[in-house]
Each structure stands twice: as C-alpha cells, then as structure tokens.
C-alpha cells in the first residue's frame, strides 16, 4: 500500500478585514469664559458613552474673541462622533478642529489552538474595546473541524505603550482559552 503519511495538504487561508468600532479622536474646542463651562462641555461625551483620555485647559490663553481654548483626546464610537459635535454646538461650544488619532504602531502576533471554537469575536473585542488599540487584520488557517487552527493577528495601537497593553490583553484572554500566543521578539 502506498504510504500517504508523507503528504500534507496545506489548508486554505482566509483573511477577514474587520470594521473599526471605537475611534480615538483629538478635538480642539473653545469655551465661553464663564463658570461651569468645562463640565457643560464634557457632559455630552460621557452621555454618549465616550471616554475622555486627556484634557488640556489653558485659562491664561484666550482667543481674540475672548474664549478659552481646550484640547481634548477622547474615545468614542464612530457613529456617535457626529452627534457629539451637534450637541456641543447646541451648548454654545465652538468645535474648531476634529482629528482622528492615528494607530501608529503595529505588531503581528500568531495564535495557535482551537481558536474558532473559543469565540474569536470576544478576543478581538477585548482589544478593540480599549479605544487605543485594535485588531486591524486577521488571517485564519483552519485545517479541519476539531483540529488546531492558527491565526496571524495584526494589532495596531496609538503608541508603543498601548501596543504592549494590547498584547497583554490578548495574552491574558488567550491563556484563559488555552490558546498559544507567539509574539514578536
């Protein structure tokens, strides 16, 4: 009988590009120079489920029109951003500039184990929900039902520290599910 054990058929590799859910936004706004304006401006952000990462408030600098400039960095769901801008305007807050914070740093990580059975979605969500990092690409290789599958995951984050945090989250999630994580040197 022919010995078939030397043959090995490579499985198909599928690539899933997933949609961004939460985005990180930097925003320059201008407040009226009267008491209570800061809270007044920040309220709609939390009302919409956003997360404020930093606020720079420069009381001594005023715009020519006498307003106080404020720099904000916040995380918010993409679909809520326009609503936020509307609500700020309704409250008399000038929105001067909106910019999306770039995911500057990336790394590739390999996962080996019963990835599909272990609810991959949850693993990805655990990264994406941070607001500072996300899974931007995923290639999955599934040799067969009940067999060990492998995935390469590209993580992106707004900075090196955040990237490291994202890897820690992934490793913790993977450990719970008995998935091996191979990280880059």
């Amino acid at each position: 009988m022919e010995d078939r054990s030397y043959f090995y058929l490579p499985p198909p590799i599928t690539t899933i590009n997933k949609k961004v859910i939460t985005m990180k936004v930097s925003m320059s706004i201008e407040l009226k120079d009267i008491p209570g304006q800061l809270v007044h401006a920040l309220q709609p952000i939390s009302n919409l489920g956003g997360n404020i990462r930093s606020v720079q408030h420069q009381r001594d600098k005023k715009t020519p029109s006498g307003r106080i400039p404020l720099q904000l960095v916040l995380e918010i769901e993409e679909r809520s951003l326009n609503i936020l801008v509307e609500r700020l305007k309704e409250r008399g807050v000038n929105v001067v500039r909106i910019g999306e914070e770039r995911l500057k740093d990336s790394m590739v990580v390999l996962l080996i184990g019963h990835i599909v059975h272990s609810d991959l979605r949850e693993t990805i969500d655990s990264i994406d929900s941070t607001g500072f990092a996300e899974v931007v690409e995923l290639s999955l290789s599934m040799p067969g039902v009940d067999m060990t599958s492998s995935a390469s995951v590209t993580l992106s984050a707004i900075g090196k520290e955040e990237l490291k945090d994202a890897l820690d989250i992934l490793e913790a999630t993977a450990e719970k599910k008995g998935i091996m994580v191979i990280s880059s040197i």
């Binding site: 090995y8 490579p10 080996i112 290639s139 040799p143 060990t148 599958s149 492998s150 191979i182 040197i185």
Partner: peptide
Amino acid sequence: VGISEITPDALKLANDAGYVIKLIGD
C-alpha cells in the same frame, strides 16, 4: 514553552507576514 504545538499553518502565516518562528531564550 516548547515547540511541539507549532503547526505548518502557523509557520506559513508567519512567513506571509514576514517572519519565521524560532524557539528563543530571552
């Protein structure tokens, strides 16, 4: 962690992304 769990698939995915897999002491 040893190397017995490493699959040809994983090596191929690594290769596609520009990497090789090695057992590294650190």
